[in-house]
Design a protein around this nucleic acid. Structure first.
Lengths: 263, 263
DNA sequence: ATTATATTGTGTCAAAAAAATACAATAAAG
DNA sequence: CTTTATTGTATTTTTTTGACACAATATAAT
């Protein structure tokens, strides 16, 4: 959708390219300052936030659509997205018609969209959720032409989102926690080099419970997918920690095997 | 769809009630004679088998549609269905147009469906898979008016199925195995009272590997959700096993906690 | 009636994994 | 130098797992 220059006219035409009834929503988890965050968009002319989402082209695989949608709406490329659940209640589209969505000046005044386009957008949609984990520092989110902002928001104080997007985030988080118990995670969330504490804090942020330091270290080192590098002088009055990086060959091998462990 | 009396005319009309683009497919696992089976439908006038599937009404929740579809197509009621994945590749609908689906006499000769109906049915559909585990002895599958047969087929020699239904079954099975590692299973698959051997064979059928008898027993009893009853005189020349049943209160509690274990 | 046979319930024992704790090493501040 | 906070690793304890032993027992064979 980023290519649209004259929204009023061409948006309506462009919608013919898409399946009318299915959508994609992406829950992008990022990690920064020992906090789990998600990437959200804020609409132009209206303060409501929502997940980056979009539609599926008639000639496009749903999985590919998810990546395209994420790129178009946020600028994030090469993100490994996982499908986690499809949301198909009638209530979720009723929200379109009754609640915030119609109150958007954007829609009400029809300054941007034609009546036909609004009718299309407010139909019933069944949406499929995808999630991903990314290193915030490696991203530079850009809002698309529909949005005023594209920002990382702390998961702890996620604002009220459009439609049922808060529920979608919740389900994505549950899914992520289960995954953590049988797949190592982190290669895409952390900077290239990180300390063991960084990794532990990440796990704690996802699981939302404290883990025992020395046991965490032993367990992760035993899985044998971390490379140890030089020490990092932190400037703090204590012993400097080693830096680690993921050995991607061993890491991928482990993921394929599906070796499990639990915390 | 069971209510249709004059398919040629009213099926076309009835399709207006449904979302054009989304479907449901159910993978119903059953267990009988120490074997895992799935419930399949065979089309009238054509030998091809397929998963019981159908469409979502415009005013119906997708989850509810799954139960309705299952009832309509197989007669199975009160089945607890779990959504496991949505299949949205373009290729899966191409199969509609190029492969078996069009070769069905049912479609080619248009004896049953109008051209318009065929056009509707062979459009691109994004399908959501649901799975369930049921006790075969408690079911009496009945084919709907579209189908000649509705039968349990051994998972080991599943016939070639319509479209990508074999892939869907495979994904359902993977999902089931992962689930088994963090949730106890069996309440819906076995008769009310069963022996420890019954339960073990069920686990072995799902995991497709042998488990050690005494360790299995120890592990399951420790989870403390089984009630022990009187012994069962099997008539065999050996010690009679105890009968067990699920303590549903403890069982549900365990499932909510998500207590995990692995085999 | 006695013995044989297959299967069950339970116990044991060693190996492995996980949890809890201890402690020396160390970077910087006082 | 001493203190302080944190790190890397070792040690101990507890729990879980896998392998196997063995008595109990329902019936068949003798």
């Amino acid at each position: 959708m980023t290519k649209i220059q004259d929204p009023m006219l061409s948006f309506e035409e462009e919608l013919n390219m898409y399946l009318a009834g299915n959508s994609i929503d992406c829950v992008i988890f990022g990690y920064e300052h020992q906090e789990l965050k998600i990437l959200l968009l804020q609409w132009k002319h209206h303060p409501v936030w929502s997940l980056p989402g979009g539609f599926i082209r008639k000639d496009e695989d749903m999985n590919k659509a998810a990546n395209r949608v994420l790129i178009e709406r946020t600028g994030l490329k090469s993100v490994y997205l996982n499908q986690f659940r499809t949301f198909g209640s009638v209530a979720r589209s009723e929200l379109h018609k009754n609640a915030q969505f119609m109150r958007l000046d954007l829609f009400k005044k029809s300054e941007v969209f034609s009546a036909k386009t609004i009718a299309w957008l407010t139909k019933r949609f069944i949406t499929t959720g995808y999630f991903a984990l990314v290193d915030i520092e490696k991203t530079s989110p850009k809002p698309d032409f529909l949005s005023a902002k594209c920002e990382w928001k702390s998961l702890k104080d996620t604002p009220p989102l459009l439609l049922d997007h808060n529920d979608i985030v919740q389900k994505a988080l549950e899914h992520l926690r289960i995954r953590l118990n049988y797949l190592p995670i982190g290669a895409s969330l952390l900077p290239h080099k990180f300390t063991m504490q960084d990794l532990q804090k990440l796990y704690e942020a996802i699981l939302q419970k404290p883990l025992e330091r020395s046991n965490f270290q032993r367990k992760l080192l035993k899985l044998d997918f971390l490379n140890r590098h030089e020490k990092q002088m932190t400037g703090a009055a204590n012993k400097a920690p080693y830096l680690y990086s993921f050995d991607m060959i061993k890491y991928e091998k482990l993921i394929k095997q599906g070796i499990g462990f639990s915390f």
